[in-house]
Amino acid sequence: MTIGRTLLQVNGATKRFGGLIAVNGMSFDVKEHEVMGIIGPNGSGKTTMMNLISGELRVTSGRISMQGSSLSDLPPHQIARLGIARTFQLVRILPSLSVIENVIAGGAFGHAKKWGSGARFFAESLLEKLGLAEQMYQPVDALTYIDQKRLELARALASEPQVLLLDEWLAGLNPTELQVGIDLISSLRDEGRTIILVEHVMDAIRSLCDRCVVMNSGKKIAEGQPSEVLSDPEVVRAYLGDE
């Protein structure tokens, strides 16, 4: 699908924790139907960046906006209602809810506001699409790790988000599962969804991302197509150190 207009804009976003600057003057745009990767070594501020977008954390300075309206001062639930959905770095399932209720939870309050039989029907179709049709009525604690990840993704998709944030969604999967996971995200991309993903798995970055931003020590050090960026000497230095 062709890449459209700019959906999300990050402008000079900075987050300070006491003396530590976790994110330092980050700026980038995300366009409609685009899959954007945020990569960088451990501790470079990727997850903090995600938390700034989803409203879990507030920017110290700078501005994040979606289609012109500012997100920087909004609490997370309002950001969710504007159409930003996320998964968490460490998978977070709602343990006392059934599988299908977990998905309905994603759509009932946020952007989509689906409720009643419509919500149930939509949740069923999402679970089928993500390969969880058989587990639909099982208790959530019976799910395998990848199924939990799928469920979390289904919950995020239930809100019909304009922008989907995936925070290391592929982390912790074994090689077979990893391929399944990459294919799944790839199918989302083919649907024309706008996705920002934080990832360590380079294969996934190469095959999934239209563009990526590289962070190091809270700053953006490179931006562009994955193949270009990954051969950039400064990026290589950031990952491997000065030798």
Partner: peptide
């Protein structure tokens, strides 16, 4: 109701509740 469902989600995980759009 949606409100009752929201409370169950809050009881499970407040962070998730916020991020699915609940004014906790």
């Amino acid at each position: 109701s949606r409100l009752g469902f929201a409370l169950r989600i809050i009881g499970n995980d407040e962070a998730v509740a916020k991020h699915v759009g609940i004014n906790t």
